[in-house]
């Protein structure tokens, strides 16, 4: 399906010959990014709301999680998810699953901070007005505070998404055959690093620019006008 979109004749020889393999890698990159974005957003939302609402017991734990993950490089997070946690708990995992878990845990910590600061930026008067009209606390949060907070944090959230998309390349270090991993394997056989790496860099460039453009368009449509 992806083949049809590319003007194959324009591609360099080495890329054309390894196209199915590289596209499979690209598909894995997209899959990992999608899992990270969806899972990370859900977890980040949960952690951010827990910290915002100062839920007893859970809130300090959430703060600890956010601080630890934000102070640890992604590479180390992936190593911990692939080697350390399975060794500790005595289960076996695949590199893909470990990477997916690592991406969700990693990006959720950053998204949680964005969610929390977004929630805190909603003027308290709006919540009070909502309560005054007879809505319950939960309704006020769900119908008034949360939607406005989410609209405000579109730019930082999308820059985290773009960051995650780029960071999926780190999964190649633990042996996942995503775009970077596949390209390195192709390069090991063909040894044309200039062409191969330039193609891969350009692919990431196009995809990341598209993702951040989507963020900008979404923000232009949904931003809170004050």
């Amino acid at each position: 399906m992806l083949e049809a979109l590319l003007p194959e004749a324009l591609l360099p020889e080495v890329i054309r010959q390894n196209l199915p393999f590289l596209l499979a890698g690209l598909a894995m990159t997209v899959r990992l990014a999608a899992i990270g974005i969806v899972g990370g957003t859900l977890l980040g939302l949960l952690v951010g709301v827990i910290r915002y609402a100062r839920v007893p017991v859970l809130s300090p734990l959430a703060a600890l999680y956010v601080e630890i993950v934000r102070g640890t490089p992604l590479l180390v997070v992936l190593f911990i998810c692939y080697f350390a946690i399975p060794a500790l708990l005595g289960y076996r995992t695949s590199a893909v699953n470990a990477a997916a878990l690592g991406f969700v845990l990693f990006i959720a910590a950053y998204l949680a901070e964005d969610v929390r600061s977004g929630l805190r930026s909603v003027p308290p008067g709006l919540a009070r007005a909502g309560l005054a009209t007879g809505l319950s606390t939960v309704q006020v949060f769900r119908l008034i505070v949360l939607p406005q907070a989410l609209r405000r944090i579109i730019p930082p959230v999308f820059s985290q998404y773009v960051r995650l998309f780029k960071f999926t390349s780190v999964a190649s270090v633990i042996g996942v055959r995503e775009l970077t991993g596949s390209a390195l394997l192709v390069n090991a056989r063909e040894f044309q690093p200039v062409v191969i790496l330039a193609t891969v860099a350009l692919t990431y460039l196009v995809l990341c620019s598209t993702l951040s453009l989507v963020g900008r368009l979404l923000y232009a449509r949904l931003s809170v006008r004050t």
């Binding site: 780029k166 960071f167 390349s169 270090v173 860099a201």
Partner: peptide, 17 residues
């Protein structure tokens, strides 16, 4: 151009390409 390419690729470009 610089920030939309993963850092890992930056490293490989300088080291391998």
């Amino acid at each position: 151009g610089m920030r939309n390419v993963p850092l890992l690729i930056h490293m490989y470009v300088w080291y391998m390409a």
